[in-house]
């Protein structure tokens, strides 16, 4: 089979491939944000964390020659930003949303500043696992070149769900997010739990960022993120604070993001930019469809400031 023989069948295939590829950063950021929000605090700074993760991961991979070291450093940079967010929010009369926006600007700004020297050089990329070895079609093969980080994210979601339900850590996290008063009466330290939850959430978001620069699109520049960090926050609401639903939501958004390029590849160029806007239109449409002015969102942690 040659390249053209797939014809229109190339579109769903490309959307599927895109869903897997584009969804990975969404998946990590939304899982991290889900964890943070379960503790009753919202971190809007994950966009900055994502970009910072992309930069630090790329720089580390370039300097050490090991992309996995880059992933680790990206995660650590993310948890550092998360820790900063949590420490500022622990002060009296500090609004977590305002802090998040400030950290979003800080993270991106810092990444641009520190990342200038790394725009030109090519860092080693994360290896992909060729799940498409059985096929003779180049398109199928490239679509099924799956990055191990995606699989890690897939495994992480049910693990988080299990952890939130059956481990002491998960239960304490949820109690803090559901009722600070009850948590205090039980003797749990609310700020410490939220600090750990925000740091862990930052770690995941940083790892998500490293995927951007070390796998797809696979380079470091200042236009690398197109708002995935912020979209992922909306994703968590859409997924009703359920880690497993976060996977499906991420795949949906990834697929929507791949629609424009997929159509272009089969020759549909009209409305290219319109199709590229699909994820954003989808965000808006879903938020409108699932929200109501009358009542609170089901499943929202009761201590979350935006839903109170």
């Amino acid at each position: 089979m040659d390249h053209a023989s797939l014809g229109w069948w190339g579109v769903p295939l490309a959307v599927l491939a895109g869903a897997i590829r584009v969804s990975t950063p969404f998946l990590f950021v939304s899982l991290g944000e889900c964890l943070t929000e379960k503790s009753g605090r919202i971190n809007l700074g994950l966009e900055g964390t994502l970009v910072m993760g992309a930069m630090s991961g790329y720089a580390t991979a370039y300097l050490t020659g090991n992309p996995w070291a880059g992933v680790l450093v990206a995660g650590l940079a993310g948890s550092l930003l998360g820790t900063l967010h949590a420490m500022i929010c622990a002060l009296e009369r500090v609004n977590d949303i305002a802090v998040g926006i400030a950290l979003m600007l800080l993270g991106t700004g810092l990444a641009f500043f520190l990342g200038k020297p790394f725009i030109q050089p090519q860092a080693p990329q994360l290896p992909a696992i060729p799940f498409g070895w059985w096929s003779s079609s180049a398109q199928v093969r490239s679509a099924l070149d799956i990055n191990p980080l995606f699989l890690v994210g897939l495994a992480l979601a049910p693990l988080l769900l299990w952890g939130l339900r059956t481990t002491r850590w998960g239960m304490v996290l949820r109690i803090v997010g559901e009722s600070a008063e009850a948590a205090r009466a039980m003797g749990y330290q609310i700020n410490r739990v939220r600090l750990l939850a925000t740091a862990a959430g930052g770690f995941f978001a940083g790892v998500g960022g490293s995927f951007l620069s070390l796998s797809y699109p696979g380079s470091w520049n200042e236009r690398l993120s197109s708002g995935q960090g912020i979209t992922a926050v909306a994703l968590v609401i859409f997924a009703r604070w359920d880690p497993v639903l976060c996977v499906w939501a991420s795949l949906l958004f990834g697929g929507a993001g791949a629609l424009g390029p997929a159509l272009q590849s089969v020759g549909v160029t009209q409305g290219y930019h319109l199709f590229n806007a699909a994820p954003y239109v989808l965000t808006l449409a879903i938020m409108i469809a699932t929200s109501s002015s009358r009542h609170r969102l089901a499943g929202a942690p009761a201590e979350l400031s935006v839903t109170r």
């Binding site: 949820r174 109690i175 559901e178 009722s179 009850a182 009466a185 039980m186 009761a302």
Partner: peptide, 11 residues
């Protein structure tokens, strides 16, 4: 036992 309940409502 407090005046306001201290159980987590949704659990």
């Amino acid at each position: 036992v407090y005046q306001h309940f201290t159980l987590v409502p949704r659990m």
